[in-house]
Structure formats: structure tokens, C-alpha cells
Amino acid sequence: MLKMKNVSKVYRTDTVETHALREFSLTVDEGEFVSVTGPSGSGKTTFLNIAGLLEDLTSGTYELDGRDISKLNDKERSNVRNEKIGFIFQSFNLIPELNIFDNVDVPLRYRGFKADERKRRIEQSIEMVGLGSRLSHLPAQLSGGQQQRVAIARALAGEPRFLLADEPTGNLDTNMADSVLDLLGEINAAGTTIIMVTHELGLADRAKRNIFVRDGQVSDGAPELHLASMAAG
């Protein structure tokens, strides 16, 4: 379903060339819950950006649902993001001027759903994350955990095949983090593929498969060893 082969990403300035990903290869099958861990600067976020079509790759191939992503133009990439991928960000990334209903509505409008359909999906997804009574609240009126739940509702409302989570509990306390992870587990159990980038070892344990990234590459060896080495400092 998601297949990256020898993907490289190079950032260039006039004087510096940074290799964020080198010959990065990974396959994720439908229904998996994969965590991607690695130290700071290892290329996790670059991987997420490329997987989520937020950035172009420099070389290599990336297929999503059998489609070569490198051949898509900007509009097609936007449509793939909108239809197939749901994003959960560390800092929630809700739009502060919009209430909860309108925030969840944003990707649905870009999808072109009719008003009735959008309303049904918004209410269903908000209900699913337990915030049905907060539809007219602004993000600033919610706790961090509630905001992340809204972000999850926004990601789910379009019923994506993939959920890409970037440090989804990074800004939450332990209780809220647990509740968000439980929710992700439920979503995965319902059939959505999840790829979660995190540097927290405890979170990686909640995934069914762990990928360790170092120096822009998937590191060889058992992930447990890497996790253990990260834990050891």
C-alpha cells in the first residue's frame, strides 16, 4: 500500500547540502500501525513529509496504493492528501479563528462534499472523539487533549486510508496522551493504517511494528535493540 524504495531527500542551499533521507526504503501494508522512531535530526519528519506528500523526494520511488507519487502534479498531490491521508500534528494545527465544527469542515470542503454530507461526517467524527457538545467552541477554549481529539476528528472525517501522526502526544500530559493513543488504537482496529512518528519509546510500543531511523536511513537490526539503545541515551 505504501512503498518507498531508495528514497533520498537532499536540501540544498548555496553552500550546504543536507541529506535528510538516504536510500530510504520502507513498505507499509494496509491496516498496519507502524511507529517510526529515531533520534533528533534522523530524518523522521522528512520521511513523514514525503509520505504525506507535503514535500517532494529528490530521488527514488514512492508508490501509494500502487500509484507513482513522483509523477503527480501539485493539484493531484493535494487531492491525494485530501482523500487518502489524514494528518495529526504535534501542535494540533487547528485554525484558531474557526470553531470546532468549521475546523473539521476544512478538508471536507476541499473534498467537495455537499453540506449535508459534511455535517453528517463532522458530527460523527466529533462524536467519536467525545466532543459532541463542543462544536461551537474555538480551539483556544479547549484543553490540549481536546484539541488533539479535534485534530483526530478532522483527520478521520474524510475516512482516509492512512493516518500520519507526527508526535501526536508531544504536547500532552500522560493521561491525555494515553487517551489519544487509545483512540489511535481503536482507529487502527477499525482498519485505518497508521504511521506514527515519535521519539517517545513508550509510544512506539503501542504500534504493531517499529521502524528505527538513523542518519536518514532505516536502520538495520531489531528495533528493540535500537529502542533500548535510545533509552540508554
Partner: peptide
């Protein structure tokens, strides 16, 4: 700028 990036990430085309 960030909000625009978020909208783009959520599927907004440049035209949108």
C-alpha cells in the same frame, strides 16, 4: 503562513 500550510496539508490546492 502556518495556517495556509495547514490548509495545504489538509488538501487545499493552490487555486483553493
Amino acid at each position: 503562513k502556518r495556517q495556509i500550510g495547514i490548509r495545504r496539508a489538509l488538501g487545499a490546492t493552490k487555486t483553493a
